[in-house]
Nucleic acid binder design. Structure first.
Length: 378
DNA sequence: CACCTGTTTCCTGGTT
DNA sequence: GAACCAGGAAACAGGT
């Protein structure tokens, strides 16, 4: 968090060093201003409306033009906006390589962006793409990664070897449940790409998504929550009035709020065929996290592998990750845990009384046992 | 289109 | 008081 707080300073210094503030049109929106425009809580990953610039009088100049036509200042402005929004540790950025205009930026291959921005590079690339074209599915690259990983993971369940006990994170997972990973708590993944195929992507996925708040105007929202009556797009923290117990309507109605009609949604955003493929159930997602420390990064751990007992180490982070998988940025541990509790009845999970954040796989779950994982999937 | 499943979202109330 | 836990209620999305 401290790193995130320093971002403003880092960029301010850099901007003031590079540009004099004589051109107000090009003067970058101070991150603080952007933050104010959004509300502090919105400085999280807003993957699916990443291009949404700060609103209001301070509206960013880059938002009015195609990236190809951005000036260097606008490029920096945009980068600063992304960094701030993602609470990325700006100190890891090689600023000397940020001196480019929009055209140069657009011609940067993802590897180059990754080299300059680290884990944020993939994100920037995606955002840039979404700005330059009508990027059809903003989160798909991340979700695809997760899906791919899930698939390959399923396919290689027969060889869980290094992931089971002896994961790259294994040694950092002391039984006391303290923060094991080398990355910064609270910004997991952002600084330390996992080894393996997901590397920065997973890191940035998790890191950004979990970097603090459980809501943003992102994919989940952009996907379906655009109904102005639905307070979710401008969710609770932004509009105190829309909080539970909306003063206008007294107590809030029970149950899940209605969402935007399908037609309206399609009008808003021509989504590609979506189909959360079956098989991506919550308990499987949890199981996969446990079996696959590369995705896990200290989010959860086995308490007793033989018994199928596990514990959430960073409950909100797991919820964020689940939310990202489901393209739902407003996922919280509260909600995730409700879904988990439904598994008790179905005996996919068993209760573990008296232990917080601890669950146990039940007899109707599968694939988590060492034998199952070690053998083929049957 | 109805129905089912698996969540998701909220809520009240209790516990740690 | 915050973070969890429990579980009811209702809505939603995808599948059949």
């Amino acid at each position: 968090m401290a790193a995130a707080c320093e971002i403003s300073n880092v960029f301010s210094n850099y901007f003031s060093a590079m540009y004099s503030p004589e051109d107000p049109a090009l003067a970058p929106v101070p991150p603080a201003a952007a933050a104010a425009a959004f509300g502090a809580d919105d400085l999280v990953l807003s993957l699916s409306s990443p291009q949404m610039p700060p609103e209001g009088p301070e509206k960013a100049s880059w938002s009015r033009e195609q990236p190809q036509f951005w000036s260097k200042a606008q490029v920096l402005d945009w980068i600063s906006y992304q960094v701030e929004k993602n609470k990325f540790d700006a100190s890891t950025i090689d600023f000397s390589r940020c001196d480019m205009d929009g055209a140069a930026l657009c011609s940067c291959p993802p590897e180059e962006l990754r080299a300059v921005f680290g884990p944020l590079g993939d994100q920037l690339y995606a955002q840039l793409w979404s700005l330059t074209s009508s990027f059809p599915d903003e989160l798909s690259w991340i979700i695809d990664l997760l899906e791919q990983d899930s698939t390959s993971f399923q396919e290689t369940l027969g060889d869980p070897g290094p992931f089971d006990q002896g994961s790259p994170f294994g040694p950092e997972m002391p039984e006391d449940g303290l923060q094991p990973s080398p990355y910064h708590p609270g910004s997991y993944g952002a600084g330390t790409p996992s080894p393996g195929s997901l590397d920065g992507s997973t890191g940035s996925t998790a890191g950004t998504g979990a970097s603090g708040c459980s809501h943003s105007s992102d994919s989940g929202a952009s996907d379906v929550d655009l109904d102005p009556r639905d307070s979710k797009l401008f969710s609770r923290a932004d509009f105190p009035d829309s909080k539970k117990g909306d003063p206008k309507h007294g107590k809030r109605k029970r149950g899940r709020p209605r969402k935007l009609s399908r037609e309206s949604r399609d009008g808003v955003e021509g989504r590609k065929s979506k189909h959360a493929p079956r098989g991506t159930h919550l308990w499987e997602f949890i199981r996969d996290l446990l079996l696959h420390p590369e995705l896990n990064e200290g989010l959860m751990r086995w308490e007793n592998r033989q018994e199928g007992v596990f514990k959430f180490l960073r409950s909100e982070a797991v919820a964020q990750l689940w939310g990202q998988k489901k393209k739902n940025s407003s996922m919280t541990y509260e909600k995730l845990s409700r879904a988990m509790r439904y598994y008790y009845k179905r005996e996919i999970l068993e209760r573990v009384d008296g232990r917080r954040l601890v669950y146990k796989f039940g007899k109707n779950s599968s694939g988590w046992k060492e034998e199952e994982a070690a053998g083929s999937r049957n």
